[in-house]
């Protein structure tokens, strides 16, 4: 693996790609629109039409861009970026190549919360219920891991697995017991992950969480680097191992909880993307974290665009698309890594 000494170039390229992806994705759909229309809409809603002398769009086109596509694309971008960062942090903290943002049972916890309100029929509460479910799973997993003594990578993984299975069983029970035709479909779509119903509120939740928590997590590069050779090495490099692990796990869980609450649990982004980026740039986190975030944003924007256009007018949950792309890519990475003596690298 080559060492990259031009991180700025990578980051600039990835940022450009993310912005271009957002703009392009907004133009794609049944109503034909161009990048210029996107620009005019944004200018109009920023109240700058007069100042910049651009014409606002017709009402229908404006609504298509501003009410439907923009919130959806921006939510996808924020969720993709957040999941990728959470994936990197989880894989480093647990030193487990199979770790993903949902490792602590977060997606199962969120699903349980979401399914409960879907079955009861109070969909308005869905994000709240999902977030509460995710946090409950986090508390359960950390309490379980902590009760065994110091929270080591293995204990974290095992506790997450236990909570995850428990919540999944409870979810299945609720579905089995009470779901009927329609609610079953919306439950399935939620379980697979989707940003189809995204609104500006979703953008605010996911985007806000990514800006605050994601930025904090993305700035922990040196700390995660110190864990490269395990807890002992991290300690001798001056890192308070237990406190750091608790803090970062909670940070990841809160961010993931916020993302899950708007999009359901979208798989593979947080698992595969960090591996793919690591293969290209090496394992140093100062570049890996922000680059994964930017590429995660582009990736999910395009995955969601595919989800809503490939079988138009029918829509797929984006989780199906990410799994369809992610699983073969993961297999490819494993296959490429087979020459390396150890692990996925």
């Amino acid at each position: 693996m080559t060492t990259t000494r031009a991180p700025a170039l990578w980051l600039a390229g990835a940022l450009l790609a993310a912005v271009a992806s957002v703009v392009l994705a907004v133009t794609i759909g049944p109503t034909d629109l161009g990048a210029a229309d996107v620009w005019r809409t944004v200018v109009d809603h920023a109240g700058l039409s007069g100042a910049l002398g651009t014409e606002p769009l017709a009402r229908l086109q404006d609504a298509t861009i501003w009410q439907l596509r923009m919130p959806r694309v921006l939510t996808a971008a924020a969720v993709g970026a957040g999941l990728a960062v959470c994936g990197v942090v989880m894989q480093s903290l647990t030193r487990n190549p199979l770790a993903d943002p949902y490792l602590l049972g977060l997606s199962s916890g969120a699903s349980l919360g979401a399914v409960l309100v879907l079955v009861v029929g109070i969909t308005a509460l869905l994000p709240v219920a999902a977030f509460v479910g995710a946090v409950a799973a986090l508390v359960g997993a950390l309490a379980l891991a902590g009760s065994m003594g110091a929270i080591t990578p293995t204990r974290t993984v095992l506790a997450g697995l236990a909570i995850s299975q428990l919540a999944a069983a409870a979810t299945s029970f609720v579905i089995f017991w009470s779901a009927t035709g329609d609610s079953y479909r919306s439950i399935l779509s939620w379980l697979m992950g989707s940003v189809a119903g995204a609104t500006w509120t979703s953008v605010a939740i996911a985007g806000g969480a990514v800006l605050v928590l994601g930025t904090l997590l993305a700035s922990t590069g040196s700390i995660l680097d110190a864990f490269t050779f395990g807890d002992t090495a991290a300690a001798t490099l001056g890192i308070p191992v237990q406190r750091t692990r608790w803090t970062l796990l909670i940070g990841v869980a809160l961010l993931t909880g916020a993302l899950v609450s708007v999009s359901g649990s979208i798989g593979f982004v947080g698992l595969v993307l960090p591996h793919a980026v690591r293969m290209a740039t090496g394992a140093r986190h100062r570049l890996l974290l922000p680059l994964s975030a930017l590429l995660g944003a582009s990736f999910l924007v395009w995955a969601d665009t595919a989800a809503r256009t490939v079988f138009a007018p029918r829509e797929l949950p984006v989780g199906i698309v990410t799994a369809a792309i992610g699983a073969p890519v993961f297999a490819l990475l494993l296959w490429r890594g087979r020459r390396a003596p150890r692990g996925l690298g």
Partner: peptide, 14 residues
């Protein structure tokens, strides 16, 4: 040891 792809120089820089 580590499973991560890391150059010798990067390992030393830690």
């Amino acid at each position: 040891s580590t499973d991560l792809p890391l150059t010798a120089l990067d390992a030393v820089l830690l």
